[in-house]
Design a protein around this nucleic acid. Structure first.
Lengths: 214, 214
DNA sequence: CCACAAAGCAAACGCTTGTTTTTTAGCTCA
DNA sequence: TGAGCTAAAAAACAAGCGTTTGCTTTGTGG
């Protein structure tokens, strides 16, 4: 296995950079803690079912006080989604830069997405996947641009795999099937169970690649 | 391709039987139309976002009048979910009885589930998949028994595939990955587009089966 | 034809929602 | 010290929610 994983140091450095650029807020700030709580609650109970009172209680303030930080609940969701996708794009780019072989590159993408969805630290991804409808039209199209960039990373790698006859299903289609498999894992995967994230990624990779018969 | 598909006549006969047994309500009855509307609206906008007023308007009555048919909104969701899973279990059993080879059996299951999720007639399945959290604890465990029966059908076929070395991923795991791919299709599949349901099922099948290298 | 139940209307109920307003407390820096 | 900020509390707001109420209409079997 030649795969080069991201070190904790590298990912830490990455989020620090994004904070410095003002693209995401520092997690230890008031806003940061709010976003973290929001992501967790939205993931656990869904956007609609999570009330601003739930959210306020979780970080220990009154519900009205939330609106000193964000103008609306909707804006909180937007921030959560935007931060998540921004961080994910950069993480994935970094992983791609470290690995050259198609197999490793694809494995890296799968692992990144799984990590983002399943590891507590990345609760926000689930929101992006499942609470899409909670965003209003304006915010959806704003996020859409980021999403396109994100998906492009996947498609490029899958196109490469296609050229090498590692897959037979058209890249765009295969990506959709993989998106489903990966995002669904939030409904059953237990982080402290027997199955590791890496083992799961390996299975998904094998499912994706072995679509070509010799 | 040896696959024997279900005829429209067979599926019609099947739902007639279930109606006669009192397990599901006739679609042309008042209750039936209500359930149909509910399933569609729940799928389109989600359970929480769909109000009883939306629902009432859709079938052309006042919101209060809904409660002559069902004691609560929650109970409407429960009925939608229960009817869906009941019908699906029977449809899948019928498909399995018509096809003997593992490949065809698995293809049949995939097609059934896709049909249930994607075809308008089976809008309810999406609710089962995505609105699970909308059910309260009591209703969840009640539905759980039906779900177990449903999943058993899948696992049995996948076990069979495993014995014949058609798959390498453990059946329970592969089922999860397939559940994700199939259910996710509701987010992108266009019934009147270029891709047919059968072609999609074929792709998913190939992804599922070709996990074994010679 | 009439009694009776089912189905529906119109209006209100109590409660929760996201949000706004007013007030209070603590901090910083000139 | 005190003006000016930020953060939060406290309380209220209108709107919308699921649901209940009292009454009327509709359909049906004896």
């Amino acid at each position: 296995m030649s795969f080069i994983a991201l070190s904790a140091q590298q990912t830490a450095e990455l989020s620090r950079q994004l904070i410095d650029q003002g693209l995401i807020v520092a997690p230890e700030s008031a806003k940061g803690r709010l976003l973290k709580s929001a992501a967790r609650l939205f993931r656990t109970n869904g956007y609609e079912r999570t009330t601003v009172r739930d959210l306020a209680k979780d970080i220990g303030i009154q519900s009205g006080s939330l609106f000193h930080h964000y103008p609306s609940k909707q804006e909180i969701l937007r921030s959560v989604v935007e931060e998540t996708i921004l961080l994910n794009i950069e993480t994935m780019k970094l992983s791609l830069s470290l690995n050259q072989g198609v197999r490793d590159r694809l494995y890296g993408l799968i692992l990144c997405e799984l990590q983002s969805i399943l590891v507590d630290n990345g609760a926000e991804m689930a929101v992006l996947v499942y609470e899409w409808r909670g965003l209003n039209d304006e915010n959806q199209s704003e996020i859409l641009k980021l999403r396109d960039e994100y998906e492009r990373l996947w498609i490029d790698v899958l196109e490469e795999a296609r050229e090498q006859n590692l897959i037979v299903i058209p890249p765009a289609m295969l990506r959709r099937l993989l998106t489903g498999s990966i995002s669904w894992s939030i409904n059953w995967f237990k982080p402290d169970g027997d199955l590791s994230l890496e083992a799961l990624a390996e299975m998904i990779l094998s499912m994706a690649l072995n679509t070509s018969k010799p």
